[in-house]
Design a protein around this nucleic acid. Structure first.
Lengths: 235, 235
DNA sequence: GATTTTTAAATTGTATACGATTGATTCAGA
DNA sequence: TCTGAATCAATCGTATACAATTTAAAAATC
């Protein structure tokens, strides 16, 4: 995410309303991003600058800026002289995303166990509980994903490191994409809630090893299912 | 770094010659980046689009694209309607960079111990040796920094994960900035070389815990010196 | 002399125009 | 009918023009 001098909002929290307020490039960025994440723009689809301009009623300048920023987040690919593509969804990509999350988030959990304040841990406990998912109800599933992202983001925030937050946010965004497309869309609410609470417990006990181990299991567990589903879908 | 479909070059390796070849936005990006990293553009300095255009003999479009990309790497800050600033150099920023490197690179080392192939480890052993630094000779110091970055990047490459590589590259770039400005510019060649060899040994022994521990020490050791120097410089 | 207001210059924000490159379609030839 | 080349349309790459905003400087007031 591009750095601004003013406080940087969390993507998870703002992506919904962002597309109506704020300045032009930000709005365009948020809109295209949302369309890619929720599958409105299919993986691998070509992104025509002109179409996006007409759709969003803006010129090419802010559209190109938005596409460049999305390129930095690996949500779109860029090929010189050929334009932009929505990033394809592949099992290999999901595997790499899992590795990235494993590396970053497991260690984040460990460090959080050493550093998080009591009030931060309290906030995490509140965020640990995952909402119920009603089968067939998209809304409830979206809420589930957002609640999960929120917990992971809140945990990352205890480290107080904006670039780190951006990395985790970006990974979580990408992580949700298959699910939004109906691939590997299993929400084991009980298990996720338990993992989150276990992590909170580890923080309270100031046990970095436990925090790291639980987080590793949580990341791997969730990812394996998605990777498997992607393989089965022939991706 | 922006994703292209074609293989992505390492910044450390190409930053020198990049500024003459390649396409326009890439060239502009590489040039401005180099100027910020080596201190030619001072930390906190305002980056006027017009000046950069005149200097590089291009229009504002590629310059703005480059500045946006540098914003994503936290090398420039962006304030709406006020333009871009070269990121200031602060002790707090260095602390956060240390945390980021600690989180990412320590776990990269651990994972590398589990996954690196024999030939990758051989390549790392070759890259472990750091060149001598002749006091007062900038060239030799630049070579020292590049050799260090190269080792860390090569280690990261064993994970085979482009976004991860980009994160480490970006962190290494920022990490070098104070040194290029003459702040905390101590090159303990012997110590660095030993750390690198210890990591290689850990990989050979397939010992993720040792790899992680050595890397943690290496990152913290190097950073502490720089943070201390920044504090003493009143930043 | 300090502070506020006004005014003007400079800079960024956005749109658009033009040239370069690419990819697709058509037409000719085998 | 299939292959290949040539042409054409569409899209991207870059530059530039104009509008909106800000900063800073100068003047006026306290």
């Amino acid at each position: 995410m591009r750095s601004t001098i003013d406080p940087k909002p969390s993507l998870v929290e703002i992506s919904a309303d962002m597309s109506v307020s704020a300045n032009l490039p930000e709005r365009v960025y948020a809109t295209i991003k949302r369309k890619i994440l929720n599958g409105e723009i299919a993986p691998g689809a070509r992104l025509l600058e002109k179409s996006l301009c007409e759709e969003l009623k803006v010129s090419r300048t802010p559209v190109r800026e938005a596409l460049n920023r999305l390129g930095n987040e690996d949500l779109v690919l860029f090929r010189p002289h050929c334009g932009f593509l929505a990033a394809p969804l592949t099992a290999d990509g999901a595997r790499k995303l899992k590795d990235l999350r494993l590396i970053v988030e497991s260690k984040v959990a460990a460090l959080a166990a050493l550093r998080a304040t009591k009030s931060q841990i309290d906030a995490l406990r509140d965020a640990a509980e995952m909402p119920v998912v009603i089968p067939g109800d998209d809304e409830s599933f979206v809420r589930f994903c957002q609640a999960n992202s929120r917990f992971h983001l809140l945990l990352t925030r205890t480290i107080d490191n904006q670039p780190l937050e951006n990395i985790v946010m970006s990974a979580l965004d990408q992580y949700q994409r298959p699910a939004y497309l109906g691939i590997g869309r299993v929400s084991d609410r009980t298990k996720a809630t338990k993992c989150h609470h276990d992590i909170v417990d580890a923080l309270l006990e100031r046990d970095p090893f436990k925090a790291e181990a639980v987080m590793s299991g949580h990341v791997i567990g969730g990812s394996e299912r998605i990777i498997k589903a992607l393989v089965e879908a022939g991706l």
